[in-house]
Structure formats: C-alpha cells, structure tokens
Computed example of a mutant assay.
Amino acid sequence: MATPVPLIVDVDTGIDDALALLYLLASPDAEILTVASTAGNVPAAQVAANNLAWLDLCGRPDIEVTLGSAVPLDDDLRTTEDTHGPQGLGYAELTASTRPLSDRDSATAWVEIARSRPGEVTGLVTGPLTNLALALRIEPALPVLLRRLVVMGGAFNHPGNTTPKAEWNISVDPEAAREVFDAFSAAPPDRRPLVCPLDITETIEMKPEHLRRIAERAGSSPVELITEQDPPGTRSRTGNPALRVLSDAVRFYFEFHRDHGQGFLAHMHDPFAAALALDPTWARTRPATVDVELTGRLTRGCTVADWHGMWGRAPNADIAVGTDPVAFFDHLVDRVGSGMRQLSRN
C-alpha cells in the first residue's frame, strides 16, 4: 500500500464537507493531521462543533479540530443555511462533543504543520480560503513548504451558483481567494494548486441509488432508501449511526436541489476534491493563470482563467476539466460503505 498522504483539511462543514471527511476517514491512503474550521456554509463556531461531533461519531476523537476566523478578510460573513440546514448538516442531529477545540487557531495550524514537514503535506480546502490567506500572511513560504494544495472553488466555463458568475466558496471571501492564487504563483510547476471548480463538481451528481448502495456495502439494516415521494424531512431508520446522520443530511440536500429545479440529486463538490487530494489522476487537468474579480458590480467573486498566456503571467493553477463520474461514485460507494461497515464493528 502506498504511503498515506498527510493532509491539512480546511472545511466549512456543510453536508458535502461531511461526506468528504467521511471519505477521508475511510481511506487508508489518507493521514488527517488537522481539521480547520472555516466560516462559510454556517458560522465558524458551528462548523467547529460539527467537525468535533462528526469525528467523534466516526471514531476519530484523536484528530485535532481548530477554529478559524469568524469573518472574511474584508467583508461581512454570509452563510447558507437554506442550502445546508440550520446547523449545516441538513436534517441530521449530532450529539455535541465534550472535547475541546485545539489551543491553536486554524491559520497557526496551517503554518506549524507545513513547517514541521516541508514538502510533504497536502492542503485541502473545501470552503472559503480565509484561513489559508491568514496563514500566508504569517508564513509567505507556504506555497513551497506544501507538497500540493487542492481547492474546491470557482467556476470558469460554467455559471456560478451564488451569482451568475461566482461560485460560493470564492464569493464568501474573494479577497482571500485572490491572495491565495497570487501567493501560489510562487509554487513550482509540479506543486501548482489543483482547482476543482463547478465545471467539474456539478457533474458529480449523487442520487438516492448511491446512498442505497453505500448502505448495502455498510451492511446497514433496514435497507436505506430515500425517494422523492417521501414526506419532506423524513428521517432515516437505519441502525448505523454514521449512516443515519449522512442520510438525514443528504436528504435535505436532495430536497434543496429539487426545489431549485436541478432534480432529486445532490452535487457532491467536496468529496470529489477530497479524492483529488489523495489521487490527482481522478481528473483531467489544464494549466491556467487564475485571478479573482474583486470590484465588478456584477462579477465580484468571479474566477477568471487565462488559458493562453494573454496576461503574460505563468500558470498558477491546474484546473480540473474532466472526469468519469460513474467510476468516481463506484469508488466513493465502496470506500465509504466499507468504512461504515468497519465502524459498526468497532
């Protein structure tokens, strides 16, 4: 087996962030060094509470959880409880953790971990880039200290999901995103950030059948089957506690997408980004120079890619442009289902 990938995981948990964490916890090729909590889908304190409780339920209370900035760099915080539920996990209810947060904040954790293992650690950000931008202000050498950075964010040849041109994670803190992309222009070509935008993540469509297959792989009883005909807010009856939380969270996500005309499905942005952090070959990529619009009246938060060197600046990112969603979901179902089966035995 390959040596596990050491990871800093920075999340704004969030339904799809929770599945991304579950995927990484079930992955023998992942070594989670810390989980940073970013304000985004819900406020930072709620994100941290979700992270602590979710890790406890998944049998990993040993993993550090840090608290990040409560606000973006230069703007008021906007959250999206309409998408992710009042606590960020849809209909799911987690038992509050009794363990404390780390004594160090998220930006400090980024810096200290990268310094302690230069050239080894991959950073995965599935929320706004606030904590990483603050970490770069402490340690500008992060682009060369990290082995790789994977970012779920942006939209290039695709509509935004927050404004017509802006994706949520970038639009929450565009100043942070610009600081990160500017700083990582210093990364060597083989360490350029891998950007996972809506162009690719909105092809990662989770459907009730995928959740049923995860439940079967986990050996869950009774059979877990979510249907569009169920009354809104129907709760899972499965005996597997982690699967019950996941099902109640994902049901909310299915209903949200349906109510916005996208079908009874859920775009699982963050689990795909997590998979890329472990194995970048899950995506076909294309190098580009990425920048973020800050002042446009209609385009603030828009990510712009120069694919052809028109700005005269070297590429600062590799952008995911294609994948095989069927193969990815086969992989996700097997890994998450197997992890839940093992968890139920412990």
Rank of each mutant, 00 (worst) to 15 (best):
L134V: 02
V125R: 00
V245N: 11
T13I: 15
L67E: 04
G219T: 13
T285Y: 04
T295E: 12
A107I: 06
A275W: 08
A314L: 10
A96M: 02
L73H: 06
F328W: 15
D12A: 15
T98Y: 00
R237N: 14
W54K: 01
N316E: 04
A109Q: 04
M1Y: 05
Q342M: 14
A70I: 01
G263R: 03
R99A: 07
D279E: 12
D306Y: 09
L243Y: 11
P193G: 06
R117N: 00
D199P: 10
A20D: 09
H308P: 00
L343V: 12
M340V: 10
P143K: 13
E293I: 07
S236K: 12
M206E: 13
D270H: 07
L142F: 14
N157K: 06
N41M: 07
V172S: 00
D248L: 09
E202W: 12
G309N: 06
P325G: 08
A155H: 07
D199I: 08
T34P: 00
S185E: 05
G88Q: 08
A92W: 03
A317R: 04
L7V: 08
P143R: 14
T285R: 12
T299I: 05
P72N: 02
N240A: 13
V304E: 04
I8A: 07
I15V: 14
T95M: 06
P193Y: 06
D291S: 15
T303F: 08
R237I: 13
D17V: 02
R178T: 01
E167T: 05
L134S: 05
V336P: 11
G337S: 12
V195S: 08
V111C: 10
A320T: 08
R191W: 03
P174G: 02
S338F: 09
T203E: 14
N131H: 09
G153F: 11
I15S: 04
Y23S: 11
R297K: 13
R212G: 15
P174H: 02
G68V: 03
A53F: 01
C302T: 13
E120R: 06
N41G: 15
A70Q: 05
A277C: 07
G68I: 03
V144A: 12
L343P: 11
G160H: 04
C58N: 10
S106W: 03
L225C: 15
E216L: 15
G263H: 04
L57D: 00
R192M: 11
T38G: 02
R60Y: 00
V111A: 11
Q46V: 05
A320L: 09
A70N: 02
G88P: 01
V35W: 03
A273Y: 08
H308N: 13
P140H: 10
D291P: 00
